[in-house]
Nucleic acid binder design. Structure first.
Lengths: 239, 239
DNA sequence: GCCCTATGTGGCAAAATGTTAAATCTTGTA
DNA sequence: TACAAGATTTAACATTTTGCCACATAGGGC
């Protein structure tokens, strides 16, 4: 199963509110980065990956909608807006700008968590516990180009039904690429997944795993069509 | 981008409200099936595919949460709940049961539509506007002078059908020229696309890419007929 | 025609990526 | 503990892509 936690970016200028969110969500098993201004948020957005962004629309000296568009321009990161104003039109505008959900303050921490989880669920994150009592692991299997990646069973199945053996590291790399498909994933993120270690520009181990994976799943490893290298960024799974 | 319309199932016992939803969403370009009871909903769920279900929690003789779990058991169809009660706990329970969003009546039709679209967007349905992922427009195939530029596949095809290999930077330059055809595009704009770096008048890298592109696609690179240089402005693609 | 600027292009050098092979580490087992 | 098999990392080298310099050519104003 997935080893690491979903990583959130919280953009909220009020320090008290921000720390309340952070504490509650951290206790719920999520990892959090905090930003208090639009500028700070941009710095984090440029330097690390986030599985979801919680954004306060009422930042001082900042148009929250612009920030949404910037996030969408870079990647398809899910966004949950929180706002102090209860104007329905503002909600429509926020959602149409690309947000995934919109909460009006005040709200229960539980509702924030429930809505964040609902969005993450759609992005391939397992429900932490209990709630998926209906036992159908539809969210545990991803497919790409006819291949089936069975997360719970840790199995990779080819388009013709054969089970292809992959090592642990290879599987984790592939699973992360699949989860974020079609966005590219940085070598740094991929390495952090397979081994708790810092990444240096000279570290080629991810490239080796990619190379080995390609030999196993690409029709012609010389012309990769499934695992695409993105220069200066990392690797992506073609949709 | 998918071709046909998203198909919705609306489960709502109040006939007036139901027809209001149906009319509004149909006019917005969605196709709709209506169900007034849980039993009717089950029939439709068993016999046709839905891209999203709008479910009223307050059905008579029916526990809406059970219906949610049944839907989740069959498939991973997105669910948007609407409810007359404004109890926050009910929202949390609904979302944790597997719903993707939760609206409390009364609400604007526009907000329902915006939330439905936000969920569909996550499921891969394109918004009307030309969203971009990775800086390259995700929609469509452009053609110029017999050449085919396949944006999603990142492929360039010659008039006789051969695939011509182009590098990432070359492809992005060509894609932008194609998008703005036949208007000329400045070097500054083009450079901003391939690499977020400032442009100085001495920067010739765009010229190099143009030169390399011409060698690949022009009949006679000495007399360019496809990529036209516009003095003091930039480059344009001939229509 | 002359001069200044803009553009076209060949030729490296630097940086990033793909790949092979050897070294190192892990894990299961006797 | 020692061994063997497999997994992972390191090292080294090949290849691709990109940036930049230098020089040639062309345009336009005087």
């Amino acid at each position: 199963m997935k080893a690491s936690k979903p990583h959130l970016l919280i953009v909220e200028d009020d320090e008290v509110i921000r720390s309340v969110y952070t504490q509650y969500l951290t206790e719920a098993g999520l990892s959090v980065t905090e930003a208090s201004t639009g500028a700070e948020a941009r710095t984090y957005l440029a330097s690390e990956h986030h599985d979801l962004v919680i954004l306060d629309l009422g930042l001082p000296n900042e148009d929250g909608l612009d920030l949404i568009r910037e996030i969408r321009k870079r990647a398809n990161t899910p966004i949950v807006i929180v706002s102090g104003r209860s104007d329905p039109i503002e909600r429509v505008v926020g959602l149409e700008a690309g947000a995934d959900d919109f909460l009006v303050k005040p709200f229960l921490n539980r509702e924030l968590l429930a809505r964040v989880r609902a969005v993450l669920r759609r992005r391939g994150w397992e429900q932490p516990s209990g709630a998926t009592a209906n036992g159908v692991p539809t969210s545990g299997v991803t497919t790409f180009q006819g291949w089936r990646l069975d997360l719970p069973a840790r199995r990779l199945e080819s388009p013709i039904g054969d089970t292809v053996h992959v090592t642990t590291a290879e599987f984790q790399v592939l699973a992360e690429l699949a989860r974020r498909m079609p966005e590219p994933v940085s070598r740094r993120d991929l390495l952090a997944l397979v081994h708790q270690r810092e990444w240096s520009p000279a570290d080629r181990s991810i490239d080796i795993h990619i190379s080995n994976l390609r030999r196993k799943i690409e029709v012609d490893p010389k012309v990769p069509r499934i695992i695409i290298g993105v220069r200066n960024v990392g690797y992506a799974l073609a949709p």
